[in-house]
Design a protein around this nucleic acid. Sequence first.
DNA 1: GGCGGACAAGTAGCGTTGCTACGTATGAAG
DNA 2: CTTCATACGTAGCAACGCTACTTGTCCGCC
Lengths: 113, 113
Amino acid sequence: MKAQALHGHLDALLLAVLEQGELHGYAIIEALRARSGGALDLPTGTIYPALRRLERAGYVASSWSTVNGRERRTYRVTEAGGRALAGERAGWREFSATVGRFLGTEPPPATPA
Amino acid sequence: MKAQALHGHLDALLLAVLEQGELHGYAIIEALRARSGGALDLPTGTIYPALRRLERAGYVASSWSTVNGRERRTYRVTEAGGRALAGERAGWREFSATVGRFLGTEPPPATPA
DNA sequence: GGCGGACAAGTAGCGTTGCTACGTATGAAG
DNA sequence: CTTCATACGTAGCAACGCTACTTGTCCGCC
């Protein structure tokens, strides 16, 4: 699956993953890959900027820690982030319903002309 | 619904609409609006360039006609476009299933037997 | 000791995509 | 005559994610 189709939904995805528990960037990538069955394998150049975007927006907060000499920035969802996620979920539902109506997850209708 | 979230799926949408019968640009906009219950109200500046993109790619073909002194460019899906649409449909299914797993939208309604 | 690979974070630059705003023209309605 | 619906189109912009690259530590292997 070409991941570039994520357009506009990446933020929601990140919030959704972080909703289940705080994680650091690298772990988020692995969580996405694991939970999607390998379909989502995002490069660091995609998620780090996205995370900073979310932090700038106030949807996540981060804290540094050092584990075995390796610096880690751990992110967690803020209250505003939680609200945003709820909105994103609603938006996704509407979006997928709308697009799904056209791309019909099912075989092409007989189209009685 | 903010339509800008369409990112990457517009082409598939256009092909899907045209699959049911050839239409001209303006009619496509109306068809999208009608079939989506008003959720999709795309500006001409969005679909005309998209249509030309599709034509350049060989997924649709167009022909001019004049109706009541008004020029019309009518589009229809080509064979390559049909194949592309099939691929887009498969892609959409995978994409929506993947994102849905995170955003909690349950599996697509296609749950037969 | 040296080397590569996993872990961990980050930036710079690019291409694609859809949107806003604008421009042109005809026919019908008021 | 003006306005609205029909009908086509372009130019410029902003957002988003991707590719490619950089820095640094720790661990296992030769």
